[in-house]
């Protein structure tokens, strides 16, 4: 595998974790978020700063980033509990701008220079190779998939689904909607923090510009493109949309044009996403398999 292919794979792996994490908040719990990159950024900064300022090893920085991001997710989740739908969309977008501005304008966070020279993880003093890093990212992708699978099979996952479907009916069925919204925000944020840590130690340099509103939209597009509310959807969405800019490199000038057109066409003809519930592909796959079984 070439270094280039490995770099692309690592980036996509990080996007898969991000898409899975946003899908917990937006897909399962039904809480729209246009500011997910903020939590990606908080994780990256927490990890990168702990490594560069205090010289902590990567395997201490990563859990630290997860905990910090989860905690911030809980705090920022509170204003989000009071608002719904379009208002929630604007609130989360605002949170993204605020977090980005804090990174950019407060000198403690490195200001416009960002955080540089974040060390790559090392094992027994030897710096991790790119292929080892890719293997580690894939392990964390697997971990995210397992967490997701556990969530959707649990009572907590069922509670999230009830909130997505109808908050009032959920409450009357005994679901404490405040508690479970916080659960979704904390879990989704913490997982984004994990992705942030992986990103920071891979890139070795991070700055506020990496975690803006556009990035949030990219993550949301992956979730919706693949099929929101499913596990396979965000994964395939992150892979396709993560790969697209690389595949369209030959038509560099038209890259965003092609990317945008893909999104528009898919939403026009498959609003449930490529592999969403009741999408063309899933419907037909089901038909074929049931016919074979019969």
């Amino acid at each position: 595998m070439s270094a280039y292919a490995m770099t692309v794979s690592i980036t996509i792996g990080i996007y898969v974790i991000l898409a899975i994490s946003l899908n917990i908040i937006t897909g399962y719990a039904g809480q729209i978020s246009l500011g997910h990159a903020a939590f990606f950024g908080i994780g990256a900064y927490a990890s990168g700063m702990l490594a560069t300022r205090l010289g902590a090893p990567f395997f201490a920085c990563l859990p630290f980033a997860v905990v910090v991001t989860g905690a911030v997710g809980a705090i920022l989740g509170i204003p989000c509990l009071r608002v719904k739908e379009d208002f929630l969309a604007i609130t989360t977008m605002g949170i993204n701008f605020v977090v980005q501005a804090i990174f950019l304008y407060i000198p403690f966070f490195g200001g416009a220079l960002g955080i540089a020279n974040i060390p790559a993880p090392s094992i027994h003093g030897a710096e991790m190779t790119k292929s080892a890093y890719l293997a580690m990212v894939l392990l964390f992708v697997l971990f995210a998939i397992l967490v997701d699978g556990w969530l959707t099979r649990s009572w907590a996952g069922l509670a999230l689904a009830s909130i997505r479907e109808d908050e009032t009916a959920a409450e009357m069925s005994g679901v404490n909607i405040t508690r479970f919204k916080v659960v979704a925000f904390v879990l989704g944020s913490a997982m984004a923090g994990l992705a942030g840590s992986l990103y920071a130690h891979f890139m070795s340099f991070i700055s506020a510009a990496d975690f803006g509103f556009t990035e949030s939209i990219v993550i949301l597009s992956m979730v919706v493109f693949g099929g929101i509310g499913t596990l396979r959807g965000p994964i395939i969405g992150a892979i396709i949309l993560g790969l697209a800019p690389e595949l369209f490199r030959p038509v560099l000038d038209y890259r965003t044009f092609v990317y945008g057109t893909m999104l528009v066409l898919l939403m026009r003809f498959q609003p449930q996403g490529l592999l969403g519930l009741d999408s063309f592909i899933v419907r037909n796959a089901k038909r074929i398999f049931t016919r074979r079984a019969a």
């Binding site: 009572w155 069925s173 005994g174 404490n176 479970f180």
Partner: peptide, 10 residues
């Protein structure tokens, strides 16, 4: 129905 059955699990 399962959602309401979970009342003791939440």
């Amino acid at each position: 129905v399962m959602i309401a059955l979970g009342v003791s699990h939440y």
